[in-house]
Design a protein around this nucleic acid. Structure first.
Lengths: 334, 334
DNA sequence: CTGTTAGCGCATTCAC
DNA sequence: GTGAATGCGCTAACAG
């Protein structure tokens, strides 16, 4: 009934060798006489034999697949990282199990468990925060983990990021130099270290260095959605801000549109600098000025780091910081 | 050295039952005395036992994972579909192996093979075209396949789409009713049935019904990139078009921006209707009028259909057409 | 260089 | 209801 799958055993029989030999040629083991190899390959081709990766995984305890946990692939920031991850994964013969977590703690833990049950060789985690539960699971698991575009205050696992504090600091310095006094800090949840610690510190530091006192009324906490940004103009206007740093591109486009929809001239009356330099920044009008993060590279480097970890290679530094800069486009003057 | 993994056997021993019984409770088999079940569950919990999905896969010949082939997750159209797929997959206890193909034939075949090697229970394919090679592989494999947002002229596998021809036809009719005579048809490769056959037919039909002769000079074939759209205005202007149907949102945003960058007034002098209704349409200014496709649902329904196929349930119709409509926003007058 | 022998961890008859 | 025995398809020593 079922289409009978042909196994390594069939190949062995047809080629008059042992299954061990077939296994060797399949795995590129050099200890096979060329003639034998050729014969086996011929049979493999003729029978259209395809090694069963599941059986292989059971026997070798390696599945050549890694788990990727992401809040939402639909967000360009994450899909860009994911793309970098997949490309490098493919390069190293790995596959990716992609799972959306919605930043939901329960879902994350759930996903992590099924990923571990599936014996993934490694895990790449994306998400702005790491709950205590997840951290516990990570350290308990023997499976290597790398955080991509996500920091953890206690850095036990690998992680790849840019220097958020410095980048934000530069943005604010730039705004101050342009004469702005009321600069909004718009970000996702402050509970996330990237926002509540690194970026905010960069923001505060720049203000302090310029002798401007910090005003918590200029800190706007939202979720990361476009809609939240779009609705923000009212508050921004009341606060009298003339410039804004925004921690996410979709959010930034929302902020920009919200302002434009209220007849605000950008960048004349309101300047914006965003954070992710995703392709959205180029698609907006005016184009969004933004911190340039190498999104694809963060993903790629994360995956590369993970391969080393999975391979138990020595890794000098589990924390890698990629370079950033700032691209001045249409939402900033000059 | 290696953290010893605890197996079903350990649980059996600790609970003083056979591994068969443990297997039963793990799989929810009712033939277990409540007391026994409780005892086993207690041990499972105490030992923190987690069934090895790989071993399970080998023994049961089911991996509860499906392969998803996508041109590029970075494109919102596809990531939206992917999101729908993943959600329903999760609901049915499946995981997703996501692989980017770049619409590259060789890569696709390659990916398909490793997916099959990994014994995925089913495959969801996205991509505007299906090469003969892929079609051959599909029909050869006993693994169920569903095309999401992709049509195949010979409909052997499952597929979920909207009626592209009709949708396009409505768009063009609308334009004609508004008095437009030179309406551009901008799409990705014409070699792809969705563009070259369905959409183009809808376009031609509307023209014909209105007594306007078809002018191939108004058909613009590009790739799907934003950049291509942005650069297109020159040609569009020379052709004297006053309205355009565009087959992809990123492309449409490009077309719009290209025009705006040339001081064209939209929608006064140039109207645009796009095709995917992704969140990009809301993020653009003016907002993009667009055919509304239920992207998430196409993914979700595809996955649902796949579960039925994998489950060998009777499926009345392997081809499902989801409803569409048109959302008139800022790039159309009135 | 090649064959034999054991498992990997679990699902699944088939008895009891 | 429960246990013992097989085997899924392949890798990995270990001989030879």
């Amino acid at each position: 009934m079922e289409k009978q799958t042909i196994t390594i055993y069939d190949v062995a029989r047809e080629a008059n060798v042992s299954m061990a030999t077939v296994s060797r040629v399949v795995n590129g083991n050099p200890n096979v006489k060329p003639v034998t190899r050729k014969k086996v390959l011929e049979v493999i081709d003729r029978l259209d034999y395809r090694p069963n990766a599941v059986a292989r995984g059971l026997a070798s305890k390696k599945t050549t697949t890694v788990g990727v946990i992401v809040p939402d692939v639909t967000n360009v920031y994450f899909s860009s990282l994911a793309r970098g991850i997949d490309d490098i994964a493919t390069m190293y013969k790995y596959n990716i199990i992609l799972a959306n977590s919605d930043q939901n703690n329960q879902k994350e833990v759930q996903v992590l468990n099924t990923l571990l049950a599936k014996q993934v060789d490694g895990i790449i985690y994306m998400g702005y925060t790491i709950s205590d539960e997840m951290r516990a699971e990570f350290s308990r698991a023997k499976t290597p983990v790398v955080l991509a575009g996500s920091v953890d205050t206690d850095e036990q696992v690998g992680n790849v990021n840019i220097n958020y504090e410095e980048a934000t600091n530069e943005v604010i310095q730039y705004f101050i130099k342009k004469g702005h006094q009321k600069i909004a800090f718009i970000s996702g949840p402050q509970s996330e270290p990237i926002n509540g610690i690194y970026r905010l510190n960069g923001y505060k530091k720049a203000l302090k260095d310029a002798g401007i006192s910090f005003d918590s009324g200029l800190v706007f906490e939202t979720d990361y959605s476009y809609q939240s940004g779009e609705k923000l103009w009212g508050e921004l206007a009341s606060a009298g801000v003339t410039a804004a740093f925004v921690g996410d591109d979709e959010l930034a486009v929302g902020v920009k549109n919200g302002a434009i929809d209220h007849q605000v001239n950008i960048p004349e009356d309101f300047e914006i600098i965003s954070s992710n330099n995703s392709k959205l920044t180029e698609m907006a009008r005016p184009k969004l000025s933004s911190i340039t993060q190498p999104l694809y590279d963060i993903g790629a480097v994360s995956m590369r780091l993970l391969t080393k970890l999975m391979n138990k290679e020595e890794v000098e530094e589990k924390t890698v910081i990629l370079p950033h800069s700032i691209a001045y486009r249409g939402t900033t003057k000059d």
